[in-house]
Nucleic acid binder design. Structure first.
Lengths: 122, 122
DNA sequence: AGATAACTGAGAATCGAATATCATCTCTCC
DNA sequence: GGAGAGATGATATTCGATTCTCAGTTATCT
């Protein structure tokens, strides 16, 4: 087993994902490589500190991570498998919702439903 | 101290709020009434079971609750005080973001920024 | 090769949220 | 007024996620 390169293994797995992954989700994708859960957390933390990764909080509590170089996008959260998929594109008309006196600095849109794979299985 | 009416106290506090409240948030608003945290959780759980309340998950992990009789709306989450405010109105163009094969059943929009009170204080 | 520093995996420890427990209290109905 | 059912508050417990600890491993530099 290679050592001192597990961080790269983690970052690479994130780069190949089709959406943000939680630490757990990432770890399970790396099962078989011998990477420990603590290493996954360490790699994620360091990735955020070094500006390569971004942490994302969606519905459901968990924090997920994805590479920071992706353009502005939102997510589709499958209610069956709980996986989050990146969705490119955005929506309009957000500013009109903001009450007077409130400062808008960002927004998050999450579409809910069933993903392709889970829909087929049903 | 009145008993057997704490559940009503909890539901009433939720009805008067300007957005969904977490169990903790609700409890702190009831400090002084002698209501225990466990009772808050019990009241919320029962409220959901009986269809009067709805649980809402936004960014940041916690689950919040609000009366179910409110029309479709979204939220403004203040990054300073972490309070969620109801926003009436919705957005368009969501369907166009959904990939082929995915079933869309709902959506959640959260605007992020600073609320009136926190903006003034800064 | 040898020394040192950084990295790693496994499991223990921590932390917070949510739930369960239990003795007490309140209401309702005799 | 008394009994029984349901509700309550304080606290213990559980549970999952994250962080910490530590001994062993690996890379780098000489």
């Amino acid at each position: 087993m290679e050592r001192a390169k597990q961080q790269l293994t983690v970052l690479r797995a994130l780069a190949e994902a089709d959406g943000p992954l939680s630490a757990r989700e990432l770890w399970s994708r790396l099962s078989g490589t011998g990477v420990g859960l603590a290493t996954v957390y360490r790699a994620l933390q360091r990735g955020v500190e070094e500006g390569m990764l971004e942490s994302v909080e969606l519905l459901g509590g968990g924090v997920r991570y994805e590479p920071k170089d992706r353009e502005h996008h939102h997510y589709f959260l499958c209610s069956t498998c709980d996986h989050a998929f990146d969705l490119y594109g955005c929506v309009d008309g957000l500013e009109s919702l903001v009450p007077d006196g409130f400062q808008l600095t960002g927004h998050e849109v999450v579409l809910l439903g069933t993903c392709d794979a889970c829909g087929d299985a049903a």
